[in-house]
């Protein structure tokens, strides 16, 4: 039993400063489940609205730039691979390669953001954003479509940023040796999170850009 001075925070910290890998990974997966259901709510709205306004959705989707959408899809898929490879690298103790690959992943995230910047910028230049007069005067289905478009991609964008921050932290931890060949739970979880960002986009892309 601990003494008054004893400052240990939990059962794990007595044995190891690392959380057990299976435990930590399961925690991450469960967290991803909640993310799926978070987006799930929006997908339900999408499904209902689309079933109601198929034709309007069709029209509205023509406004989106499928080329940028496709580019971003490729960017995210490649980044998913590089982050998966970085995990291979750390397991093989190739520290610098791992850092390089994560760095590249973050770079791709940056590309994604720049693309989105232009995409949103274009919409704003047309005065097409939630609450704008232009948008209010569109047919009902198109209002719904653009509302969903902004909310879904916006929430996704937020996840890209969070994922980028997480990956940056991981780079620092690899550098400092906290993440290494033996202990890479955080790295694994960061990669899982990044793949989720990709997964969501895999559905967003066809549903928003490809229904023309």
């Amino acid at each position: 039993m601990s003494t008054t001075e004893h400052n240990s925070h939990n059962a794990h910290s007595e044995h190891s400063e690392y959380i057990d890998s299976d435990t930590g990974k399961m925690g991450m997966w469960l967290f991803l489940f909640t993310e799926i259901f978070l987006f799930g709510g929006l997908f339900i709205v999408y499904a209902v609205m689309r079933s109601k306004y198929g034709e309007d959705f069709h029209q509205a989707a023509l406004e989106l730039n499928a080329f940028i959408g496709a580019t971003n899809t490729v960017v995210l898929l490649v980044s998913s691979m590089t982050v998966a490879m970085s995990l291979t690298a750390i397991q093989k103790d190739q520290k610098n390669l791992a850092i390089g690959l994560i760095f590249f992943t973050i770079l791709l995230a940056g590309v994604f953001l720049v693309n989105k910047y232009f995409e949103y910028g274009h919409k704003f230049s047309l005065n097409l954003y939630p609450g704008s007069d232009v948008m209010r005067n569109l047919p009902h289905g198109e209002i719904m479509f653009f509302g969903l478009y902004f909310l879904m991609t916006g929430l996704h964008l937020f996840h890209v940023v969070v994922g980028g921050i997480l990956l940056t932290i991981i780079i620092f931890k690899i550098k400092s040796g906290r993440i290494n060949k033996e202990h890479f739970l955080l790295h694994e979880n960061g990669a899982l999170y990044w793949h989720l960002v990709d997964l969501i986009w895999i559905f967003l892309f066809p549903l928003l850009y490809l229904i023309t």
Binding site: T34, F37, L38
Partner: peptide
């Protein structure tokens, strides 16, 4: 699994 739905 249910709470995120109300969250969104």
């Amino acid at each position: 699994l249910a709470t995120p739905v109300v969250g969104i």
